[in-house]
Simulated assay, not measured.
Amino acid sequence: MADRYRPKPTVQRAREGNPSKTAIKEGVIVPRVILAEPDWNEVFKASSDPAVELANVRCREVASEEWRRMVPVLEIAAGIGEVDHATVKDLCVCVARIDQAERDLSGRGLMVTAERGPVKNRAATIAAQYRTQLARYIRELGLYRVPELQSPHPISTKPSRTCGTDFPRGKFARLIGSLHRKPYPSVRGIWAFLAVILTKFYIRQGGHVMPSG
């Protein structure tokens, strides 16, 4: 859903083909540069605790891998500049922290034992918060995936006909049932339709319909 208070970035609107067909303002022109990878040792600093240091080593590796994967794509698709350095770095940190939280969930489980009994693992809440922030960075950098406007194999919206007969959909549709919702008309609808057709046939032939009873 579009955010009424936060308009879409210009790059994202251009990538989506500008569905609203409104004029796209050029905005601030940022010169393109090749972003230098940050020193992850400054972001995930060394710790005297072996467990924390082991997690930080893993975070450095994940963040560095994400940076090398994302930056070449952003330089071509989004035209990032030096002002985007902090955003891209925070995006990589989010990916590393999500990996850390998921590894903790895999190791200790979703429920952990506390003083008052089993409680929810806080890593699940942390992972959800980082995913929310990651989605904001993705939107800010214009990395939303553009869905296909038309499927190569369009799905037919016509109702299937299991009785092998094509029935009209005009003013007799209310007599034979709604063909848009039913695959075939009801028996009562078929008899009503035939009665109307026979009546019109006799009238056109100059005849008359015999009264019942």
Rank of each mutant, 00 (worst) to 15 (best):
A2W: 11
D3N: 14
R4W: 09
R4Y: 11
R4E: 14
R6L: 13
P7S: 12
T10C: 14
T10N: 14
T10I: 05
G17E: 03
K21T: 06
I24H: 12
I24L: 10
I34K: 15
L35F: 02
A36M: 13
E37S: 03
E37D: 04
P38G: 06
P38W: 02
P38E: 03
E42L: 04
E42R: 05
V43G: 01
F44A: 10
K45D: 11
K45W: 15
S48D: 13
D49K: 13
P50E: 04
V57S: 07
V57F: 08
R58D: 06
E61G: 08
S64Q: 12
S64F: 02
W67Q: 02
R69E: 05
M70V: 14
I76P: 06
I76Y: 13
I76H: 05
I76A: 05
A77W: 14
G79P: 07
G79Y: 15
G79M: 11
G79N: 15
I80S: 03
E82T: 11
E82G: 01
D84G: 04
A86W: 12
T87K: 10
V88E: 05
V88K: 07
V88Q: 14
D90W: 14
V93I: 12
C94I: 04
C94N: 09
A96W: 13
A96N: 09
I98K: 10
I98Q: 13
D99F: 13
A101Y: 14
L105G: 12
L105I: 07
S106P: 09
G107D: 12
G109F: 09
V112S: 11
T113M: 06
E115R: 08
E115K: 10
R116A: 06
P118Q: 11
P118W: 07
V119P: 09
K120Q: 15
K120T: 12
R122Q: 11
R122E: 10
A123Y: 12
A124N: 09
T125A: 15
Q129C: 10
Y130T: 02
T132H: 12
Q133S: 14
R136A: 08
R136C: 03
R136D: 09
E140H: 11
E140T: 15
E140F: 09
E140L: 08
L141V: 02
G142Q: 05
L143M: 14
R145P: 05
R145V: 12
V146M: 00
L149W: 03
L149H: 04
Q150P: 01
P152D: 02
H153L: 07
H153D: 11
P154M: 01
I155K: 12
S156I: 02
S156N: 14
T157S: 07
T157N: 15
K158G: 00
R161K: 15
R161Y: 03
T162L: 08
T162F: 04
T165D: 02
R169G: 00
F172R: 00
R174I: 00
L175P: 01
I176H: 10
H180V: 04
R181S: 05
R181M: 12
R181Q: 09
Y184V: 15
S186P: 03
V187T: 10
R188H: 02
W191T: 02
A192Y: 00
A192W: 00
F193Q: 00
L194V: 03
A195G: 05
V196R: 01
V196M: 00
T199I: 01
K200A: 11
I203Q: 06
I203M: 01
I203C: 00
H208E: 09
H208A: 13
S212C: 08
